[in-house]
Structures are given as structure tokens and as C-alpha cells.
Design a protein around this nucleic acid. Structure first.
Length: 570
RNA sequence: CGGGCUGUGGCGCAGCUUGGUCAGCGCGCUUGACUGGGGGUCAAGAGGCCGGGAGUUCAAAUCUCCCCAGCCCGACCA
């Protein structure tokens, strides 16, 4: 490829909308262009990177025993009605109608389609296990697309679905896919960490997310400094406190305190000069339309995912002011558990350990002090409801938990039989009994992986591509394109490199050297070979490694060999 | 969807408060010259229904209303 004919213009200035390094660099280096919010065109250089990632993914999937196929993007609504997700999936699904008014969606994921396929194709236990995957565009109408390709409305995803005879089979498949994911991301040049996660809307039980630790990550994870425990904060468990050590015997009886206009924990802390860990934060929610109350210690955050799992509800939202007033009889800001009737109350396991608590009195401008769990109020359930924070004890080993931000590049799920049962993916076992397939599903965000690689591999000058997914391995820069000698040497080198299996691009543009150097750094080719008068006078070319910025003068007849060796060792 | 903000040549922006030399700057692009090892210099150019519509006015990029698009902060998720 000659640079002069490549469709790629680098930008000197950063487009205003780009916030994070990967987004800025993908635009500046001419990897992609925005078409609309969360929708991008991939230019030739960017698409070469994506193709390489996809090839690595294919290779690992094939080795893990998965078979590639291609499912439709446009999917009939009927299948989604069968699984119940036409309604459950909500506004995030793009829905369209054909000329007859029949409803379809643009696939946000493909459990329905694949399960329907297996239902029709698989009859016998002899056909199992089966692991099927595809690499395709996915469509999700994100509330807020952002960070370029990190959260976009159209993105490339590898999705795999496994069908096993039983849980044991699924466990084996899951482990095989887990291992394949670790290899696949490593081959892309990423350092990832697998963390426990919440299954969310897709359903199922066990699930791990593959996280790239990065400042710009949207997910927060906790990990233990002493053991292997790592989890998304959505999921991360907290240890219950030692209630045996709690003595509430000496607490005087409950008392009203006038707190005019004091509504928030912060205001209350200041007003009463009391520490927030003595407050009982009382939150009113609506779970599938039913009001419920959740209690956490004043200095803690309620984890809504834990709460909705505990309640088994699909829609959980903070209650409106009217509902709060209806439930508590007081304006927002003065809710408390004492004396509340006719509403389900769930408390975080730290709440019973609060000695002499402070909470709302369910009366305007009034709070209660000296509140004790068991004596002054009770709950329907006491369980883990709060969000884990740095410094918490590890739920596995009791060690110290740390927090970090991560970009989720992949996820593996044990789905179980949710979809095979609702969609009828059944098989006959050895004894002739009909049984549902036990399913797993496995996703890799291909476009997001590309961005994550840039987040982990860039410097002030631009991208530093790992060799495995670089758009080209080598950029050959001709200093003076009017010099026929330099052009000839560069062309020969170009041909020899391709002959040796090295992907080279020849920068034959009539630009000044500085422009070419800047572009080479920005685009991030792993190796740059400069053909210029200085070295050529000694029969040499200059070989520079992007990652280390090290320069070597190499005799012309050793150049190909040297470059190959450098690529090998990188 | 709520809150904050922005839309002016491909990109980054000024102009708007106080309507009238107001169609401007830098980068990029084209042509030529000089240059030639880290985004060079000079000269000459091309390129804009000032996001769209309606209004106010003698006069609108500038004021008013509506709409659209985008960005940031929050509630959803790979």
C-alpha cells in the first residue's frame, strides 16, 4: 500500500466531542469518522485493525470448538414475544415495522434467534454439545452514546452460544470459553482481569466480565489485595458485621428532634453534629409499581441491583414524591422505619449494628434519635444491600478490597435453561426423555476491544499498536521523494518485506519529513523504516521501534531480516 | 427523560452582550516558488443558504419563538 493513495487524513486538531484518548486518537489517526451519535464509519486503517481482532477471535473460537455461522440482524418480534423480552428489553431495542405493519427489531443480541435455530435443528443428545458463534453488528439504542466507539449504538460483537446436555457439560464449555477469552485478549495486546458480575437482564447465574483496567472505564470494580476475588461493584458482596459485639442495652428510649428543613444526610450530619454512620438512610422505591423501603447506613450507598435481585422485580425506580408522602405520611426527607406499616422493609445487614440510630420520624421537620433495631422497628428482611467500597473486607478471605475502573471488553454467562425452556430448545436424552438444552453465552465487544487497546497503548504522540493488530507492521518513510535513489531503495525494501510476510506501507507522499514522522507516530505503526540521504550514504536505513523509540542504523541487505526479528520479539 | 451548554467553510474557533465595513482567524485543501531528518516559508486561490423554520425590524450570524443535531452531568448497558 502506498500512503499517497490511502484514504486516511490525520487531524492536527482534536475534534471537540472527543473526551478520552482512544476516541481522540481514532479520529485524529484517521481510523474512523462519526456519521451520527454512536454511529461510525471505519476507514481503511481502522478496519484493518478490526479485521485482525476478528481473526484472532475466530482463531480462538475455532480452537475452543465453536462453529461460526451468521444470524440475521433483523429479527421478527414473535420470537421476542415467546421469550418475553419484547417487553422486558425496553427502549434500548431498535424496533422497526415492515410495509405490512409487522414488527421486527435490529438485533441487540441473538439468544432468541439461535435458540430457535437449535430448537429446529437439534433432536438428539448425540448432536450435543454445540457451540455456535458469529461476528456481526449489534444495535442498541443507548440512552447516551459516548466515548466514541466505547458506547455506541451500532457496534461489532462476537457472540457465541453454547448448548450442552447438562450443567456439567455447560461448566466445561464455560471454562473452555473463559480460557479462550484470556488468550484472545492477551493476543490483542490487552491486559484484562476477569471479574464476577451481575447477570442483569440477560438472565442466568454465573457470569464473569473481562475488564481492561483504565481510568476511562465506565465500570467500577473491586478486587482483593490478598486473594483472587474480583467483582463488578454491581455484584461485589459485603461481609455482615459482627452482631455479637453490638450492645444496645444502654440506649435510652427514642426521642423526637426538631430538624426544620433538614432533609439530606449531609445536612443532618451538620445539624446534629453526628457522624453519618449513625444514621439510618431510608429510601423509598417502587418495584414493579409496588412501594418498598430500603435501609442502609447513612454513609453507605444502596446498591440498586442487589435490591432488585432481592425483590425479584424487573423495574426498580426511586419513588416519586407523591408515593413517598403516601407511604410515610411526611414530605421527602423525613422517612424512617419506626412505626411504618403496610410496606415491605428491607435493611442492609449493617443496619441492626447501628447503636442509637438517627432517622426520619415520618413527620415534617422531625427526626428520631436513639433508634435501635429490634426494639423500635423491625424489617421483613436483613441482607446485603449496600455497594462495596475500597477498604471493605474481602468476602472470600477477609483481606483488603481495592477499587479500580474498568472497560468491559467481554463477558461469559451461564444461562441455564431460561431460553431453551421458553423457546422450546429440547432434545431427547439416552433414555428417550425430553430435556432442555443447558445454555451459555459469550460476548466480545470487537470495536470496544479496539478502543480499549488504544486506552492501554498510547503516548503523547499517538497510538502504539501491538504488532498483532497493527494496521500495518512497518511504515517505510522516504525522506525526499524526488530522489530516485531513495525511491528505488524504498520500493525494493517494500517488495522484500511483503515477500517476507511483513505488511508494509510506503509513505511516498511529497510531504516534508516532519509530517511523515508525526503521522507515523500518530497512527502507531510498530516499526518505522526511514530511507534518507544520511543513512543511505553509508548503505544503511534507519529502523525505529514505536514502543521504545529506539533507533538503529541497519545495513540495507540486513534490513528485512532485522525488521522480521524485531516484529518477532515484540 | 431531567439538569447545564453548544451549533459560523473539512477541523479548531472569534464575532452575538450593544442589530448596520460582519462573512473573519488559525489549521487543513489547490497551484506555484523556495525548501527538505520532527506538522517549514512566501505568494496566489478554492471553499460558507452563520443547524432548520417562523417572526420582530428599513436592516438579523446577532433579538424572539418553535424544531433539529451534538456535547457534558445524572438514571440504563457490551
Amino acid at each position: 500500500m502506498k500512503f499517497s493513495s490511502l484514504l486516511s487524513s490525520t487531524l492536527r486538531e482534536v475534534p471537540a466531542e472527543a473526551e478520552i484518548p482512544s476516541h481522540r486518537l481514532m479520529l485524529r489517526a484517521g481510523m474512523m469518522r462519526k456519521v451520527a451519535g454512536g454511529i461510525y464509519t471505519y476507514l481503511p486503517l481502522g478496519y484493518r485493525v478490526l479485521r485482525k481482532i476478528m481473526e484472532i477471535v475466530r482463531d480462538e473460537m475455532d480452537q475452543a470448538g465453536a462453529q461460526e455461522l451468521m444470524l440475521p440482524i433483523m429479527q421478527p418480534a414473535e420470537l421476542w414475544h415467546e421469550s418475553g423480552r419484547w417487553n422486558d428489553y425496553g427502549d434500548e431495542m431498535f424496533r422497526i415495522q415492515d410495509r405490512h405493519g409487522r414488527s421486527f427489531c435490529l438485533g441487540p443480541t441473538h439468544e432468541e434467534i439461535i435458540t430457535d435455530l437449535v430448537k429446529n435443528e437439534v433432536r438428539s443428545y448425540r448432536q450435543l454439545p454445540l457451540n455456535l458463534y458469529q461476528i456481526q453488528n449489534k444495535y442498541r439504542d443507548e440512552i447516551r452514546p459516548r466515548f466514541g466507539v466505547m458506547r455506541s449504538r451500532e457496534f461489532i460483537m462476537k457472540d457465541a452460544y453454547s448448548f450442552d446436555r447438562d450443567q456439567t457439560g455447560l461448566n466445561e464449555t464455560y471454562q473452555r470459553m473463559f480460557d479462550a477469552y484470556e488468550r484472545l485478549f492477551a493476543r490483542c495486546g490487552l491486559r484484562t482481569r476477569a471479574v464476577l458480575a451481575d447477570p442483569g437482564a440477560i438472565g442466568g447465574n454465573d457470569t464473569h466480565e473481562f475488564m481492561v483496567i483504565a481510568e476511562s472505564g465506565e465500570a467500577e470494580i473491586v478486587y482483593c489485595e490478598s486473594c483472587d476475588y474480583a467483582a463488578n461493584v454491581e455484584k461485589a458482596e459485603t461481609r455482615p458485621p459482627q452482631l455479637a459485639n453490638v450492645d444496645t442495652g444502654g440506649v435510652p428510649s427514642v426521642k423526637d428532634v426538631a430538624t426544620p428543613g433538614v432533609r439530606t444526610i449531609g445536612e443532618l450530619t451538620a445539624f446534629l453534629d453526628a457522624s453519618p454512620d449513625r444514621m439510618i438512610k431510608t429510601l423509598v422505591y417502587e418495584a414493579d409499581g409496588e412501594p418498598v423501603i430500603a435501609l442502609v447506613r447513612g454513609d453507605r450507598e444502596l446498591n440498586e441491583i442487589k435490591l432488585s435481585r432481592a425483590l425479584g422485580c424487573t423495574l426498580l425506580e426511586a419513588a416519586s414524591a407523591e408515593v413517598v408522602e403516601g407511604v410515610t405520611g411526611a414530605p421527602v426527607g423525613f422517612a424512617g422505619p419506626v412505626g411504618l406499616k403496610g410496606v415491605r422493609i428491607l435493611a442492609d445487614h449493617e443496619v441492626p449494628a447501628i447503636v442509637g440510630g438517627i432517622t426520619g420520624a415520618n413527620k415534617a421537620d422531625t427526626h428520631l434519635v436513639n433508634v435501635v433495631y429490634g426494639r423500635d422497628f423491625s424489617c421483613d428482611e436483613v441482607l446485603d444491600l449496600r455497594t462495596a467500597v475500597a477498604g471493605d473486607p474481602c468476602p472470600e478471605c477477609g483481606g483488603h478490597l481495592q477499587t479500580a475502573r474498568g472497560i468491559e471488553v467481554g463477558q461469559v454467562f451461564k444461562l441455564g435453561t431460561k431460553y431453551s425452556e421458553s423457546l422450546g430448545a429440547l432434545y431427547l436424552d439416552e433414555s428417550g426423555a425430553e430435556r432442555p438444552c443447558v445454555m451459555g453465552c459469550y460476548g466480545v465487544g470487537v470495536t470496544r476491544t479496539m478502543a480499549a487497546v488504544i486506552e492501554q497503548n498510547h503516548d503523547d504522540d499517538g497510538i502504539v499498536w501491538p504488532v498483532a493488530i497493527a494496521p500495518y507492521h512497518v511504515d517505510i518513510i522516504v525522506i525526499d521523494t524526488k530522489s530516485s535513489e531513495q525511491m528505488e531503495v524504498a520500493h525494493d525494501l517494500y517488495e522484500s518485506l511483503w515477500g517476507a510476510g511483513v505488511e508494509a506501507i510506503l509513505d511516498d507522499r511529497a510531504e516534508r519529513p516532519g509530517v511523515k514522522f508525526k503521522d507515523a507516530d500518530l497512527i502507531g505503526f510498530p516499526i518505522r523504516v526511514v530511507v534518507g540521504p544520511k543513512s543511505l550514504a553509508e548503505g544503511k536505513v534507519e529502523v525505529r521501534i514505536r514502543a521504545t523509540r529506539s533507533d538503529d542504523q541497519i545495513p540495507l541487505d540486513h534490513a528485512v531480516e532485522h525488521v522480521c526479528a524485531q516484529l518477532e520479539s515484540a
